[in-house]
Design a protein around this nucleic acid. Sequence first.
DNA 1: CGTGAATGATAGTAATACTATCTTTTTAGA
DNA 2: TCTAAAAAGATAGTATTACTATCATTCACG
Lengths: 228, 228
Amino acid sequence: MDIELQIKMNEKLFLRNPEQSELGKRIIMHSIRLIYKNGFEAFTFKKLAENMGTTEAGVYRYFENKHRLLVYIVAWYWTWLHYQVMYQTNNINDPVVKLKMIVKLLATTVEDDLSTSYVDESLLHQIIITEGSKTYLTKRVSEDNKYKLFKPYKDLCAHIASIILECNPHYRYPKSLASTIIEMAHFQNFFKDHLPSLTDFSENKDESSTVVFLEDMLFRVLSKDDLK
Amino acid sequence: MDIELQIKMNEKLFLRNPEQSELGKRIIMHSIRLIYKNGFEAFTFKKLAENMGTTEAGVYRYFENKHRLLVYIVAWYWTWLHYQVMYQTNNINDPVVKLKMIVKLLATTVEDDLSTSYVDESLLHQIIITEGSKTYLTKRVSEDNKYKLFKPYKDLCAHIASIILECNPHYRYPKSLASTIIEMAHFQNFFKDHLPSLTDFSENKDESSTVVFLEDMLFRVLSKDDLK
DNA sequence: CGTGAATGATAGTAATACTATCTTTTTAGA
DNA sequence: TCTAAAAAGATAGTATTACTATCATTCACG
C-alpha cells in the first residue's frame, strides 16, 4: 500500500496552509528539526529561513509567529496520535486492554511514521514532551481556545475519558484522570531524563518504567474492589 | 509576635542578593506583580524597571536575565511552601491526614503571608501554576539542575514521597506519585479555569473539586485493600 | 571625613520580531 | 499556448528585546 496520510488542520492555525506546498512542508520539517535541536526559546524564523534556504518573509507568509507554528505542530501531533489510538485499539473490546495500549502510545517513543513524509514523529514526540504545555500556558489561552486550536488535544482527552468510563462507569473524574495520564506520560519521561530524583526510575531505563507506573496508577484508581 | 520570615536562597540564583536591599526586594515585589499581570513572555527588565522607577541596568545587577529571575521566585515559592507544609503538618501523626493537608496546601489559593513583607504569595501561587514548569522545560535544565536551582522543588517532592511511603510502605512509585500530585495540583486548576473540558469540574467552582480529585486518586492508589 | 559599594543616568550594540515593497518564478485555467 | 494571478525570492526598514559599558552620584561605615 502506498497511502499518504493527510491531516486536515484548523485554518486558524496558519496564514497559508503548509500542507499544500513544497515550501510549506519544508517549513514544518525544518521547524521540527530546529525546535528539537535548540529548543523553542532559541528558535526564530530567521534561523529557520537560513537553515532551510528561504527568507524570513517567506516563513511569515505561512505562520503569524513562532507561537502559532508551535501550536500548529503540537495540534498536528495530537491529531496524528488520536488516529494512532483509534487504529491500534480498533477491534479491541476490553477497555482495560485499550487503556494499556493508549498508555503505551502516549508514553513510549514513537517511530517515524513513513506515511507522513515530511513529519518525523519521533522528533515531534520529544518536542511535545518539552514544549507541548507551552502552547497553552500563556496569557492567550482563552483566545486560542476560542479559535479551537486545542481541539485535537481535547478530543483525545475526551476519547480516553470515555474508555475510562467503560472500565469503571462509577468513576467520577474521567476527564481529569485522562488529562493527568496524558500530561504525566510526558512529565514523568522528562523528569526521568533530566530531573531523575522526581521519579522512581533511574535515568538509563527506557520509557517502560513510566508505562508501568501509569498503568499501575490508572488501574488502582479504576479498581472496583474498593471501599467506596 | 513580629517575625519576619527569611528564606536563604541558593547563591547561583542571583548576581546580588535581592533580599539584602530595598531595591532588591522591590524588584521581587514588582516582578511578581508584572508577571502575574502580563505573563512571563511579555515580561521584560525594561518594563519592570519603568514600572518600579529604576533603570534596566539596575535590574541586571541583581539577575543575569529574566529566566533566572523566574527560577528565583519559583524556588522561593517552593521553599516557602515546604515550610508551610512542615508547619501545618507538625504534630500530626496520621500520614493520611498529613497528605490531605499537603494536597490542600498545594491546590488551594494561598492567602498572602504577612510574615514575608515583599512577597504576595497569592499572586505567586498563580504564577507558579502558569509559569512554574517553564523553569525546567528548557534546554538548560541539566545545567541549571547542576547548580541545584531546583533543589527546593525536589526537596518538597522527596518529603511528600516519604509521607506516601508512611501511608503504604509497599507502594513502589512514591516519588513519581508525589511529582504527579504536585504537577496536577496546578494543571487541573489551570485546566479548570482555562480549558475546562479537560477536567470534570465546572469553571465557577473553586479549587475544592481539584482537592477532592487529587485526594481520591492518591488514596485509591495507596489503598492497601487491593489485589496485588 | 573619606572611601568603597550601591545606585542612577545615559549610551550603545546585536539580535529578535516583525512589515513593506518590488521582482521573478510558478501554475492553473481560458 | 498564452496569460494572469498566486507564490516565492530578494531586499530594506522599524520597534523592541536583551543585553554591556561607562561615568557620576549618593550613602553607609569605620
